[in-house]
Design a protein around this nucleic acid. Sequence first.
DNA 1: CAAGCGTGGGC
DNA 2: TGCCCAAGCTT
Length: 350
Amino acid sequence: MSKITSRLLNWYQENKRTLPWRDHPDPYAVWVSEIMLQQTRVDTIIGYFQRWMEKFPSIEDLAAADEQDVLNLWEGLGYYSRARNLHKAAKLLLAEYGAQLPEDTKTLMKLPGIGRYTAAAVSSMAFGHDAAALDGNIRRVYARVFNVEEPLGTKDAENILWALAEDILPKGEAGDYNQALMDLGSAICTPRSPSCEKCPIKQDCEAYQLDIQEMRPVRKTKKAVPHHIHAGAVIVDEGKVLLAQRPQKGLLGGMWEFPNGRVEENPVKELASLIWEGYQVKIKVGNPIGEIDHAYTHFKVTEHVFLCELIQLSQKENLRWANLKELDDYPMGKIDREIAKRLQTSALSN
DNA sequence: CAAGCGTGGGC
DNA sequence: TGCCCAAGCTT
């Protein structure tokens, strides 16, 4: 075992955080936590993880769940395909794997939502196999320790970093070692202003020795995010409000929303035809309720919301009339949950 | 294989 | 405030 790995493992023993899924004998819990942690911080998922394990304690429970209940529990976490994939995979495991997670990375990667990183994480942490993991933290740590100059995400950088991960991995300690690297990355070797003085491997770190740690990893330049204008319709009829379910694929797949869409310039003028074309619903546009700003990863939105009256409804597929009190039962993205809350609040004060 | 996919926090 | 980023995967 190299000096680097033994220093990291020693540091981990002294500094590892106690987390709900750590030192947990249940591979299912490790799997769920790893999916939740994809592109998501530890602090964010703690509550979600505990509610999830309470409601779906096992693969069998998850496989038997309703998709809407699964999405409701996931609401607010984002990347909702993760929840749908967990659900799909649980059904698959029950049908074809005896309700047990496979232990090897190759079989794990056949499950929806499990890629190279997550397969290695589950195999090493839940089953103790020698699987090298590479996530955002580990990429950053290795890019600094070995002064990798290829921009992150390029084929060259990926080849170099995965090869490093495989080469350095200490046999028999992969689970702790992978977690040690990730804890180091989140606590010490941070993207900006890393705490190099506290780092257990600073004497091994090429970037630190050259004092260029903040120049590593090299990043590719990013594109500007567009800003779109949306118009949304709160359509009320006989005390109920009209909701639409989004398609399974794409943005907020399977979630519910107030009928809305992108407009070019004038939300008031364009809204009625927009709703008609998008949902086959004819409306009369009334008073504005408010504006909501939201930043997605790849674009920003300002949504103008209007109270509207129903004139004609030409299809019922994917549409539903909901009581204001029942809006919490419908999984929604952030914008539509905000609209729902405003409606419930104003209805309460009336 | 580049683009799409959410949201919250830090600075 | 605006921007960057975060335990990635899918198509």
